[in-house]
């Protein structure tokens, strides 16, 4: 069964008097457990589609269903609840909370979910170990390298067992070696925990790692390839 179904999504931005058609009727179905990348040049609409799937942005027309939730029928509060429980985000700029340690950053999402303290601490430690960050629990983001920060962001995204992780250019600020390590780790999480990963990317390495590659151009899907099992 598909975890994401996008039907004829349209989105236009207004910059002053200029209209920018970011999406012009995108149809996309994503299977549960997928590891896919949405690629395309700047302005092709890949971040917009990711934001719409994540309930961060609204669409002008079309229909999106995420893990059984019809987004266009949900209010802001319901969307926030869905993001909290079903979606993990990884951003290009890491976006960790600077006053919290690595462990606390991972814990924070579970705090919002109301997970008891001892349980969330154990889970956070365990997931940080899984992403190779044992021993860095108490370090604040400023004391971590870019790659480590992005690993913390991934740990934060997957700690609460979301259905989907949306990663917007996760390797853009990393060198190729660190980026490769991060992708290996995310792939492992995908296989181990059956979490669906959807990337938006320019990075060829991410495209190579993805099992499915969707290319967008001018707000339309121009190519959709599923690779054979490696």
């Amino acid at each position: 069964m598909d975890i994401v179904e996008c039907t004829d999504i349209k989105k236009t931005y207004h910059q002053g008097k200029v209209e920018i058609q970011a999406l012009r009727g995108v149809n996309l179905s994503i299977a549960r457990g997928g590891f896919m990348a949405i690629a395309g040049p700047s302005g092709s609409g890949k971040t917009t589609i990711l934001n719409i799937i994540g309930g961060l942005d609204s669409m002008d027309a079309g229909h999106v269903v995420v893990d059984g939730n019809t987004l266009d029928e949900m209010n802001q509060s319901q969307l926030a609840q869905m993001r909290l429980n079903k979606i993990g985000f990884v951003f290009q700029a890491y976006n960790l909370i600077p006053v919290l340690s690595a462990l606390e950053n991972v814990e924070y999402i579970m705090l919002l979910q109301g997970v008891p303290t001892a349980q969330r601490r154990d889970l956070a430690r365990s997931i940080l170990n899984d992403v190779g960050l044992e021993g860095t629990y108490d370090r604040r983001p400023a004391e971590l390298s870019g790659g480590q920060q992005q690993r913390v962001a991934v740990a934060r995204a997957i700690v609460s067992n979301p259905s989907i992780v949306l990663a917007d250019e996760p390797t853009a600020n990393l060198d190729s070696k660190t980026g490769k390590g991060l992708l290996e780790m995310m792939k492992e999480m995908n296989e181990k925990k059956n979490v669906t990963f959807i990337f938006s990317t320019h990075d060829q390495m991410v495209m190579d790692y993805a099992r499915r590659l969707v290319r967008l151009r001018d707000g339309l899907v121009v190519d959709d390839k599923v690779k054979e099992a490696q």
């Binding site: 802001q76 926030a80 993001r83 979606i87 985000f89 976006n95 909370i97 934060r156």
Partner: peptide, 16 residues
């Protein structure tokens, strides 16, 4: 402001 945006993206409700 970016941090508040992140928190909302993660599912933090306005009241929080």
């Amino acid at each position: 402001i970016r941090e508040f945006g992140l928190l909302k993206a993660l599912g933090m409700k306005p009241w929080w």
